[in-house]
Design a protein around this nucleic acid. Structure first.
Lengths: 334, 334
DNA sequence: CCAACGTGTGGCATCGATGCCACATTTGTG
DNA sequence: CACAAATGTGGCATCGATGCCACACGTTGG
């Protein structure tokens, strides 16, 4: 299977290969007349640019690496969709890799991306090693959704603290004073921020927070369900789940116990995903604008690649939005 | 930013570039001793292969194009996740493009993939032109989820007819004789198959199907909702929605009307997605094994690329599975 | 003891596009 | 009208890895 090259187009159009290259792909001198002739010739013989050759010669690439944990989680899917949309508009391609939140997989993927000579990578980092290694090799990095200490690279985050605070305030405003928080991790900025917002709202309202109401669990609906069961022993009148996966477990447990939401207990979640408005009652949530988060990542990365940004590290914080639905209501009387 | 090349490794290890290439990447003669020395040298100076150079020279690539409609739809996300999983295991990369089911976008993406010299593409085709064009250019194509007439290429499908038939039989078995079908398209094999299965079940049960019960709508939850409203005028005792998006609309409308599911009306859907088991009552569905569908696509494509398959076009049909949940029950008495 | 062989290594051209420079041609200016 | 500047075009080397061939060994068998 032999495809035509610039040489062939040159012969067909009666010009030199250099001219073909200029006329078709790179900007630079080429008279309108020649441009048309070259374009016609290329069209006629079915010429298609070879990205590998171009990338090799010009030491660039229009492929961008995207490293996420799990495409099946709507959060990551939305993020990827936003990224892809923006990249496509800029004539870039997205190389998507699932790392299953496994440091080894993440590192392997990063090495592959290095080999592809991608100019940039967007990653929801598992380990600081990965972004750092990429940067050490001259690849621009944007960390999405979380910030790892000393990982380097630009960052795009949801303003977790503000979102969690607002959500908690909403519940406090409804008279809840024993609010349970279901959370999986607090080492990354994501969980840490949400926890901080939760605490801050208590402080602001002069409420002492019973530490037993903070229920640590693992990133898994089934585990969240068991943890919810334990948490209910602490007699909360409302539960906040720190992300969409944990919310599934919490909801399952509450329904299983036939607890009336929100009459007997309120439920709310960080990270709005579609099913949350389909269940009955629909869940009060914090919408992270995940697709927009993805778009921001891509825009930021492209700006970096084009060297339009000052050297200084940039941190973009996307304001979340509280969506009040039916799952939160006044605290029941004790 | 200058990275080490095979030349540098060769110098470091005291061998020739050819030997480095053989020792590190290609199979071929290289004594264990030299292999180790080369590996050590590469490690030491931080050498990373350049895929562009390799691809150019060897006229291959380990990137695979994946062309889908909408990553935000869990069906496509699962498909992509399955594909990526299998590709990653085989040391291939996934270049993912959303075409928004737009023929022009699809074609543009296909051209980009040609330029990348990918050896294969997995596509949920919008137009037969796209797979055909790719094949004309020597790219292996696997069509996922649907078959377009004369599009060429291998195909991986859910056995839509069998699945729809089984689902319909389940409802007929519950005593339903007026079953509404909410469907968006019947031109592609997907919709056509589901409709055929729906009809076949009626024939098998000696039921005459009232054509007014087949409600055509567009691929959009809001439209599906309006169509459901109209469909209810035909007095169905059960509704089947042909995919997960339409199911959202149908459910919303039934809930809005405060119809008791399944006491007053049963609801079922083709294409199981997570929210369907979270709502109350959980939806009876047909699980397409979407992730496995994706894996199959990737395996098939890789086998093609490795030329392990006979020339003849292959059609893989993945058997779906009926999952009975709470949303379907006995037909109400007339 | 020498031919035939197997094994491991190096040399060189090559994949296709493009950056850079030299040069030809046209246009503008004093 | 001459000379400088602007505008196009072609030639050639180059990006980095690898396929292919030639060849230098050491081994085996007649």
């Amino acid at each position: 299977m032999k495809r035509p090259t610039v040489q062939d187009v040159a012969r067909e159009a009666g010009v030199s290969p250099s001219t073909v290259s200029r006329a078709l792909h790179t900007r630079g001198y080429a008279s309108p007349d020649v441009r048309d002739r070259v374009r016609a010739a290329a069209e006629k013989i079915g010429y298609v640019l070879d990205h590998n050759a171009r990338n090799l010669r010009s030491r660039t690439s229009t492929s961008i690496g995207v490293l996420i944990s799990d495409l099946r989680n709507p959060f990551y899917a939305d993020l990827a969709a936003g990224i892809e949309e923006e990249l496509r508009a800029a004539e870039y391609q997205m190389v998507l890799v699932n790392d299953n939140a496994d440091p080894a997989e993440e590192m392997r993927a990063a090495e592959t991306l290095l080999a592809m000579r991608v100019p940039g990578v967007i990653v929801t980092p598992v380990t600081a090693d990965c972004p750092r290694m990429l940067q050490d090799n001259g690849v621009h990095v944007v960390c999405a959704d979380r910030e790892l200490r000393r990982s380097g690279g630009d960052v795009v985050l949801s303003d977790n603290k503000a979102g969690a605070r607002e959500l908690t305030e909403h519940l406090i405003g409804l008279g809840h004073s024993r609010i349970g928080l279901l959370i999986d991790e607090t080492k990354w900025s994501t969980g840490a921020g949400r926890l901080a917002g939760f605490r801050a709202a208590h402080v602001d309202a002069d409420l002492t927070l019973d530490e037993n109401l903070i229920a640590y669990t693992s990133f898994d609906a089934e585990a969240a369900r068991r943890t919810t069961r334990d948490l209910l022993g602490q007699q909360p009148t409302a539960i906040i789940s720190a992300n969409n996966v944990l919310a599934q477990g919490a909801l399952a447990e509450l329904k299983d116990r036939r607890l009336k939401i929100p009459r007997q207990i309120s439920l709310a979640a960080y990270d709005d995903v579609p099913w949350m408005s389909l269940v009955e009652p629909a869940l009060t949530t914090v919408d992270q604008h995940t697709v927009e988060l993805g778009r921001s990542c891509a825009r930021l990365l492209l700006a970096r690649i084009r060297e339009e940004l000052p050297t200084r590290r940039r941190i973009v914080r996307v304001a979340p939005r509280l969506i009040i639905r039916g799952s939160t209501g006044p605290a029941p009387r004790a």
